[in-house]
């Protein structure tokens, strides 16, 4: 199988990978780069658990070809664990019991992080619901996640 050499930045570090043409960004991140926070809940673009940031924008790594990562800046939760805003979000997820089985949690935190970073003040409930609408959660019914994110935003935006 022909392999394609690509380089990109992953969580702030220059990286290189040899990817096969049909490899998904998800596979490259999990299998080659060890970024296990990226989850596969469906593989068809419908659940959002595989969300990562590409050039700062949330996209679905399960339906993005790995070779399209060339030259891009990719961020996974592993790269945000030291970020002060992310730490607040994670703490609030614990306080609000917003991580039940935890499978959607990394993606929820990433889309929540983006939303909070980009909003002017504390986003409204409706805005948070919309911001996280691309990630399914089967455990929480979303309420605790919405409350955790809004509470995190209150701290971060102070």
């Amino acid at each position: 199988m022909d392999r394609i050499r690509i380089s990109f930045r992953l969580n702030g570090v220059e990286r290189e990978a040899f990817v096969s043409p049909e490899e998904r960004l998800l596979d490259m991140l999990r299998d080659d780069m060890g970024m296990k926070s990226v989850k596969e809940g469906c593989g068809t673009g419908d659940c959002g658990t595989c969300t990562v940031l590409v050039n700062g924008k949330p996209v679905l790594s399960c339906i993005m070809p790995a070779f399209q990562a060339r030259g891009k800046e990719i961020t996974t939760l592993e790269g945000l664990n030291e970020d002060s805003a992310m730490k607040v979000i994670q703490d609030k997820f614990r306080e609000y019991h917003a991580a039940q089985c935890g499978f959607c949690t990394p993606a929820m935190e990433i889309v929540g992080y983006k939303l909070i970073k980009e909003s002017d003040g504390v986003p409204s409930k409706e805005e948070v619901k919309e911001g996280i609408s691309g990630v399914l959660c089967r455990c929480t019914g979303y309420y605790d996640i919405v409350d955790a994110l809004r509470s995190a935003a209150e701290v971060i935006k102070k």
């Binding site: 296990k36 664990n81 997820f93 614990r94 306080e95 019991h97 991580a99 089985c101 935190e109």
Partner: peptide, 13 residues
């Protein structure tokens, strides 16, 4: 707080 969710919120393997 639950004592089993730290690894989850950190996205640990």
């Amino acid at each position: 707080r639950r004592i089993d969710d730290l690894e989850k919120v950190l996205g640990k393997p």
